[in-house]
Amino acid sequence: MSNIIELKNISKTFVSKNGEGNVEALNDVSFSVGTGEIYGIIGLSGAGKSTLVRCINLLEKPDNGKVIVDNKSLLELKESDLRMVRKEIGMIFQGFNLLMQKTVLDNVCFPMELNGVAKSVARKKALEYLEVVGLSEKAKAYPAMLSGGQKQRVAIARALASAPKILLCDEATSALDPETTKSILSLIKEINEKYQITVVVITHEMAVIQEICNRCAVLENGRLVEEDTVEELFRHPKTAAAKRLIYNATSQVKIMDGGKIVRIAFEESETSEPVIANLILEFKTAVNILESNISSIQGKSRGQMLIELPNDEKTADKMIAYLKKMKSITVEEVKNNE
């Protein structure tokens, strides 16, 4: 699989007038996205996600580094050539950014208008794309008459209209309710499969990453601190930032002082064995289940459980060793402050 997007050592500092309020938005960030992949970038707000995604189409110009899209080094291109590359990169936004004074149909026609497609051809194609996103009956409506989810569907149809190779999603579902988020995400996935469009998703929600991404990068304070397949990231989050995002997504439990706490991750189908029951029988000591849940990662069920072990450290360590021997589960200790 070749890489369609490669960002190398990207740094960006926003300079304020007096020099005191300089903000280092990105610090030496590198990652690459394979053709046809759905790549996620997750981080809390202020982590630099939006700046990073804007570096891919140079809406934001990095101070240092290289941006290679479709084998072209964008920072070396003339402005007119850069505009041509941008036409191959669709983008959808948290605020939808539709033209409020134009009909839904004309909104979808907009990129084709820029590309010099004849109006009659553009209209016909736009209707096809509206069909794809399930909004063909709203062609004559104005954006103000649509719901948030419908607006994002129009934005997706518009992004498709320029037949892009890449689709950038900047917090595309953050303004939507969970139900609508799900339907938009499945639409994005459908588009990824149907048109072979590479997708980059920016979000602060782990659920979004779990739903559609293949691989994912964790961004914290402008640095890319961890990158892995979503499955691995869920099973073995290595950095504190990743752990925080994953636990926040699933756990509402406030971890108190007391016994050691372990997190067990498992695949639902692989766990015919009664792990916890066996553990209790083996040690004749009770453990406290703090939280347990199942989430779906790209359609496959993944579970996680937080257990509090007895205060007695020796027993706790033995229990951890016992759990670690089991092949079907992943075990790790959770520090109290994480």
């Binding site: 505009r83 669709g90 983008m91 936004f93 950014n97 539709l98 907009f110 820029l114």
Partner: peptide, 26 residues
């Protein structure tokens, strides 16, 4: 809305296209 201008830029619109097709319309 600045977002709409950004949208047009992301689609490779030139300055003139942004003026005529986005700013003056919106």
């Amino acid at each position: 809305d600045k977002g709409v201008i950004e949208m047009a830029m992301s689609m490779g619109a030139s300055t003139m296209e942004i003026i005529v097709k986005v700013l003056l319309v919106e």
